[in-house]
Write a protein that binds this DNA or RNA. Structure first.
Length: 618
RNA sequence: GCCGAAGUAGCUCAGCUGGUAGAGCAAUUGAUUCGUAAUCAGUAGGUCGGGGGUUCGAAUCCCCCCUUCGGCUCCA
């Protein structure tokens, strides 16, 4: 392989344009196209190329910001008319044209006044705003390629000719500076790679993600639906989806009982008093469904389960000897999510949280947090997820006043979260100021088969509710104390988790989750009675089986079952009937030969119990 | 909620500049009874997302609304 030419350099570890002069004693390293740092620069330079192309094609366009992002880049424009997907071709052509010209990309240092003058002349008010807001000193670096000049810190590639493998992906709206009261800009998304193969690989990944889309698979496999007439963001679980949910719930309940939890069932609506007391009507009203007036009293659908669990707590006097209490509920809540945010199962308006509240003494909190953390990771692993991203959200030290709970509680809460993470030697990211006002929290995201992360677990301290409802327990000292309350959901919501499972497995669920584990395909109608007997036996053994009794050939029955991603297809003909056994196929692998029914049952039982990730019968 | 795009049979989609809808799959009926990924033939299915308007005439043009999609913002 040819030695690649360096496209950037690092001076004392800092990425710079190729050709940046180094001082004496500086440590200089070359950076090659296929390094991760280079990719970021490719993206950033591609965004400049995009802006250059758009400005040339649509004169009078204002350009905003255009950073490299995960998987690509974008640039925001204020255009005379909105851009459409159909404009992307023309833009891409223009970019390719500019790339072929191999324009040098040059860094220049301007005085602020010079930049001001330049952008004023060009009528680029967005850039003028950026200039005033972002540039502190009097000197500012700009990058020029041809006529195009952009305010930029850099670094950049040396010339546009390096940007050969670009793909524009979509155009969408974005607010100027993320502020929804501000202009709506046109954001063009694209991706770029140093070579054609890497670009093709990424496009394959996008295609794959599209094919895994849970909304598509949900329909193909008849798992669930969302229905226009019945209201947006409300999920209908079809029989097959419902079976999976049942399996998930049964396992979840079993694990909770084993883990020292008790289960609760609480109502779906509650009187205004409850939400007044909880504070939801104060800070959460916009996200709640409007009240129902019954007997001159307002009732609200619950957006959270906490107040209900607290009511159970307060139904009798509690002693320190009762604690910790761990109360779990698959609690269905309704939240009025903004219409534009709804997305399949991943963002809905009615969903079931796998919720629990742990109420304990301050002395118990370290143990309880560790316990929840272990529980969560273990539960997620049993669904086949192996990699996690953990975030610890703590309060903003600058604004201590806006938080519920005492300072001491925050300090202890944070300490016990950190302690649990470090005892288990888990890497985490500390999110300063990301805590909710009512307490610090740990969030766990799971990595799916495509490397995407999905938020599931949240473990949150809640100092607000316990305060507002005046939760108390009698301590060993005979005095009343405020307990700690931890609110946690491990899977997050069953809807979202289901959506993630579908995408992670691409519909090829592990046997223990598969809605239909086996389809029986009798060869002809004469074999139907034997088919029915096998069906009975499978069902009695707890196998989720179906009999394909249509007047179709085996080929057709096999094809349809394969398309439904059923793990096993059992072909029954005169031979099998005579021998009292069955021929089985494993999904995607074809005929695996004959096996006795009892042996089949026994072996797949092992796979189910082991939550196996494959269907192979050993 | 905001910006843009879209909505035609259960599903996937075709229907050019206005002249009262079409395919494949699915469904259904009949025949076929088949050895490892689509048996053959017939039939039925749509006030073209909803409402209003323009027009002799609207799936097609205009307005309002609903839903979905791509994002922004937000989040389990």
């Amino acid at each position: 392989m040819d030695k690649e030419k360096a496209i950037l350099i690092k001076i004392n570890g800092e990425l710079r344009d190729l050709g940046t002069p180094a001082g004496p004693g500086d440590r200089v390293e070359e950076v090659y196209p296929h390094s991760p740092e280079a990719l970021e620069v490719y993206r950033h330079s591609a965004s400049h190329l995009l802006a250059q192309a758009v400005l040339e094609l649509f004169p009078g366009t204002q350009y905003g910001v255009g950073p490299a992002v995960e998987n690509g880049f974008y640039y925001d424009f204020l255009t005379a008319r909105p851009l459409a997907e159909s404009d992307l071709d023309a833009i891409a052509k223009k970019m390719a044209h500019l790339a072929r010209q191999n324009l040098p990309i040059r860094r220049e240092l301007w005085s602020k006044e010079q930049a001001r003058e330049h952008f004023r002349r060009q009528g680029q008010t967005l850039k003028l705003e950026l200039l005033e807001e972002k540039v502190a000193g009097d000197e500012v670096s700009v990058y020029r390629q041809g006529e195009f000049v952009d305010l930029c810190r850099g670094p950049h590639l040396g010339a546009t000719g390096l940007l050969q493998h670009v793909k524009l992906l979509s155009v969408a709206a974005a607010y100027w500076k993320g502020d929804e009261r501000s202009h709506s800009l046109q954001r063009v998304y694209g991706t770029v790679f140093p070579d054609a193969a890497a670009l093709a690989e990424h496009l394959r990944f996008l295609q794959e993600a599209k094919e895994r889309d849970h909304r598509l698979l949900g329909r193909q496999l008849d798992l669930f639906s969302l229905q226009e007439e019945a209201g947006p963001g409300l999920v209908y679980w079809h029989p097959k989806g419902a079976r999976m949910r049942h399996v998930i719930e049964a396992y979840w309940k079993q694990r909770h009982y084993e883990g020292g939890y008790e289960l609760l069932y609480t109502p779906h609506i509650g009187r205004e008093w409850l939400w007044q007391t909880s504070g939801h009507l104060g800070f959460y009203k916009d996200s709640m469904y409007a009240p129902m007036a019954i007997d001159e009293m307002n009732y609200y659908l619950k957006p959270m389960n906490c107040p209900f669990h607290i009511m159970v707590y307060k139904s009798s006097q509690r002693s320190y000897r009762d604690l910790p209490l761990r109360w779990a509920e698959l609690g269905t809540v309704y939240r009025y999510e903004r219409s534009g945010t709804l997305h399949g199962l991943l963002r809905v308006r009615g969903f079931t949280q796998d919720d629990a509240h742990i109420i304990c003494t301050p002395e118990q909190i370290d143990d309880e947090i560790l316990r929840v953390l272990d529980f969560s990771l273990d539960l997620l692993r049993s669904f086949g997820f192996q990699e996690f991203k953990i975030e610890l959200s703590v309060r903003d030290p600058q604004a201590a006043g806006k938080y519920a709970g005492s300072d001491a509680m925050w300090v202890q809460a944070e300490a016990s979260l950190v302690k649990a993470l470090s005892v288990r030697q888990l890497a985490y990211q500390r999110m300063e100021g990301e805590a909710v006002f009512y307490g610090p929290k740990i969030d766990i995201k799971i990595k799916d088969a495509l490397g995407r992360f999905w938020q599931c677990t949240t473990i949150q301290f809640d100092f607000n509710m316990s305060e507002r409802f005046g939760m108390k327990y009698i301590g060993a000292d005979g005095a009343a104390h405020q307990p700690y309350m931890v609110h946690r959901a491990l899977l997050g919501s069953l809807e979202r988790f289901f959506g993630v499972l579908i995408e992670h497995y691409r519909g090829f669920f592990p046997l223990w989750l598969a809605p239909v584990q086996a389809v029986i395909a009798p060869l002809n109608d004469d074999c139907l009675p034997y088919g029915r007997r096998v069906l009975e036996e499978l069902r009695r053994a707890g196998v989720r089986a179906e009999l394909d009794a249509r007047a179709e050939g085996v080929n057709r029955k096999i094809r349809d079952a394969e398309k439904q991603k059923v793990p096993y297809i059992l072909v029954l003909g005169p031979q099998e009937e005579k021998a009292g056994n069955l021929s089985y196929r494993i999904h995607g692998q074809g005929d695996k030969g004959k096996i006795a029914l009892s042996e089949f049952l026994q072996k797949i039982k092992i796979l189910v119990e082991g939550k196996s990730q494959h269907y192979e019968i050993q």
